[in-house]
Design a protein around this nucleic acid. Structure first.
Lengths: 349, 349
DNA sequence: TTCTGCGATGAATGCGCATTCAATATCATG
DNA sequence: CATGATATTGAATGCGCATTCATCGCAGAA
C-alpha cells in the first residue's frame, strides 16, 4: 500500500506557496500575511494535512540546548491503586490543558525507574514526572546534563535539578496522633509500609513524635504495601495478638479501609466504639456512607497543579530553579474516631 | 547552556567507524561484524549515547507506508474510575512488555475523542486504543487512510479497520436476570447509564430479555453515570418511591456499591434480606468483606492481553484483519443476592 | 593462483519540518 | 515622487538517523 502521508510540500503546492509559508502558517507568531495563512489553512484543511510533530521536534533540535518534543514522561508505580489513578488523571488533564503530552510508563519497583527513564529519554521528552519513587544518582546526573527537568511527586529530593511536591507527611502523622490522643486513646497501633518507604517512614515519625510527647509509643506496628489486602491482613494480625490496640493509624486510606473491613466485618468489632481508626489521603471511598473514614486529606488538585506548573516553568525556561514544595494536610473528621463529649474533654492522658 | 546531545556521529568518531556502523550496531539484524558492534557499543556506553527515537522514526519514514514511532495512543474517559485505572494499568504493562510506548490522552466526553486522536496523530502513533468511546465516521476514515489500526475496548464497531474487544454485555445482563429470577425476585429494578451508552444499553437489553421470558419487566429504571455518587443517588431514588424493588441490577460495580452503601447505611435496609443486589465488572472492592457484592466478572486480564495482541499484530503486519472479539462474563456469587434454600426452590414466580 | 560470492563497510541521501538569509513587496513619511 | 523602514516570502539548510548503493576484502571454489 502506497500511502505516503501528506506533507507541508503537498499543501504548499496546493496553496501555491512555498513550504516555508506552510510551516509559518502553522507556527503561532511567525511572520506571515493573514491572507497567506488563510489560504494555506484552507488548502491544509482540504488535504487533511496535520503537521508532523515528530519532524517538528527534529527540526527545532538546534534551537537551543535540546529539542522540544512536547512530551512529558510520567513514571508511575501501582497505577491500579485508586489514589494513583486519581493522581494520574489529574496530571493528564493538567498537562493537556497546557498543551503537553504524556508518555506513560508503569513500573513495578524502584529498581525499574532508571530503565523506564532511559526508555523515555530516547523519545526526547522535555521533562519527567516520577510518582512515588526516587531517581538514582546516576540518572539524576544524566537528566541534569541533558537539561531535562525532573519532578518528583510524593517524594522529596534535595538534589539540584530535581523538584518535588509532597504533602507534609510528618505533620500529617502528628495530626493523626493528636486526634487520637484527644479522643483519649493510649494503646495506639500504626500500620505502614516497608521502612524503605519514605512516605510511611515520615508519617510514622510525626506520629510517634507526638506520642512520645505524651510518653507513649505505638503498641503495635504492622507493615503493609498500600493495598487493601495488606491492610486487611494487618488488621487481622493486630487483633489476633493479646495487646489489642484501641486505635489504629494507617499510612494510607486504602490500608485503613482494609483494616476497617477486617475488624468490622470479619472480627465483628465496632468502630469507633471498640477502636478508632484514622487513615491518610482522603480518597473518594473514604467518604462512602458505610465507611466515613476519618483521615488526613491531601489537597491533590492543588498539589498536582503546582507540580505541573513548576515543571512546565522549568521546561520552558531553563533558568528556572528546582525546588521542593510541601503542602499541609488537613484533618477530615468523620466517624471512625471516637468523639469526646465536649465539656469533660481535655483530661485524658 | 551549550549542551548539544550526543549523536551517532560522536560515537562513530570515538569508535573510529562511520556513522552508518553506529546505526547498524543499534539495529538488530543489521549487517555488521561482531567486533565492530562491540566496539561501537563500548564507545556508546562511555559517551552515554542513546539512539534518538524521534530521529529514528523520521528516517524510517520512507520504509513502507508510514513511519513507526513505537508509540500507541490511548484515549480514555474517566480515568479516575477504579475500573479504568485497572484497565489502563494492564494496558500499560502489556504494551511495554512488547516494546511499545503509551501516549495517554484523557477526555471528558465522547465529543473530545476526535480532537484527542488528532492531537495523537501528529505524533505519528502507530496505533490507537480507545477506551469506552467510539470513533466518528470521519476519523475512522482518516485512520484507515493513514493505515493506523484502531482498537476499541469496551465498545464494538463493525467498521472496517476497527477492531474491538468487548465483554458480552447482553449475555451478562441475562445472567444477572437469571440469578435474580432464580432467587425468586419479581420486582426488579435496573440502574444503568444514559441511553446513549452502548454498554448500559446492552446490559439492560439482555437483562430485560430474560425478564420478558417470564413475562416481567423492570419495575424501575434509574440512570447514573458510572460513579459511586450517581449509584448512591439512584439507590436513594429507587427506595423513595412507593413501588420498592426487591432486587436491583446495576450496570457497574461502582454504581452497585453506591446503591449498597445508600440502602444499607443510609436507609437501613438489609441486603440481601430486604433486597438483592447485583453488579457488573467485578472490581476489587466488590470483594471486600463488607461488600461481598455478587456480580458479573469481566476477564479483564485476558481481554486486555487479547486487545494488545490484536493491535500489535495489526501494527506489525498491515495485512492483518480487524475483528471483534467478545468475551463471556461469568457470574460471581457472593452475598448480595438472596440464596434459595435448595429443596424447596424453583417455585417462586 | 585466479575467480566468484558474500559479509562488512562508508559515503551519500532523505525523512518533514522550522529557521536563517537574502530578496522583494508594501507602506508611511518628507 | 523618493526613500528608508518594515512586513512577507522563498530557497536553502540541517536536525539525527536508517538505508541504499557502491566498494572492499576475504574465504572458498575452481
Amino acid at each position: 500500500m502506497k500511502r505516503r502521508s501528506i506533507t507541508s510540500y503537498d499543501v504548499a503546492r496546493a496553496a501555491g506557496v512555498s513550504q516555508s509559508a506552510v510551516s509559518r502558517a502553522f507556527s503561532p507568531g511567525a511572520s506571515i500575511a493573514d491572507a497567506t495563512r488563510k489560504k494555506v489553512l484552507r488548502a491544509a484543511q482540504e488535504l487533511g494535512y496535520q503537521p508532523n510533530a515528530i519532524a517538528r521536534s527534529m527540526s527545532t533540535a538546534r534551537k537551543d540546548d535540546h529539542q522540544k518534543s512536547g512530551m512529558v514522561g510520567v513514571i508511575v508505580t501501582r497505577l491500579e491503586d485508586p489514589f494513583f489513578a486519581h493522581t494520574i488523571a489529574h496530571f493528564s488533564r493538567n498537562l493537556q490543558a497546557q498543551g503537553w503530552h504524556m508518555l506513560l510508563f508503569t513500573v513495578d519497583s524502584q529498581a525499574q525507574v532508571d530503565d523506564a527513564l532511559n526508555a523515555l529519554m530516547q523519545y526526547q521528552i522535555d521533562g519527567v514526572i516520577i510518582l512515588s519513587a526516587l531517581l538514582s544518582n546516576h540518572m539524576t546526573k544524566v537528566c541534569r546534563s541533558k537539561g531535562i527537568p525532573v519532578m518528583l511527586y510524593n517524594r522529596s529530593a534535595a538534589e539540584s535539578g530535581v523538584s518535588s511536591v509532597v504533602i507534609d507527611n510528618r505533620e500529617g502523622g502528628r495530626l493523626a496522633a493528636d486526634l487520637l490522643r484527644e479522643a483519649g486513646h493510649d494503646r495506639i497501633a500504626f500500620v505502614g509500609a516497608d521502612t524503605e518507604d519514605e512516605t510511611s517512614r515520615e508519617r510514622r515519625a510525626g506520629f510517634e513524635e507526638r506520642l512520645r510527647a505524651d510518653g507513649l509509643s505505638p503498641v503495635q506496628v504492622e507493615t503493609g504495601d498500600y493495598t487493601f489486602v495488606s491492610g486487611r491482613e494487618a488488621g487481622l494480625r493486630l487483633f489476633a495478638r493479646s495487646e489489642r490496640p484501641d486505635a489504629v493509624f494507617c499510612a494510607s486510606d486504602v490500608m485503613a479501609l482494609g483494616v476497617l473491613h477486617a475488624v468490622r466485618f470479619e472480627l465483628g468489632l465496632r468502630v469507633p466504639q471498640d477502636l478508632s481508626l484514622i487513615g491518610f489521603d482522603d480518597i473518594p471511598s473514604a467518604a462512602w456512607p458505610g465507611h466515613l473514614l476519618t483521615t488526613i486529606r491531601q489537597p491533590i488538585r492543588r498539589m498536582i497543579r503546582e507540580a505541573v506548573d513548576m515543571l512546565v516553568e522549568r521546561m520552558e525556561n531553563s533558568e528556572a530553579e528546582a525546588k521542593i514544595t510541601r503542602f499541609p494536610g488537613s484533618l477530615i473528621l468523620r466517624d471512625t474516631v471516637r468523639r469526646i463529649d465536649t465539656g469533660q474533654t481535655k483530661n485524658e492522658t
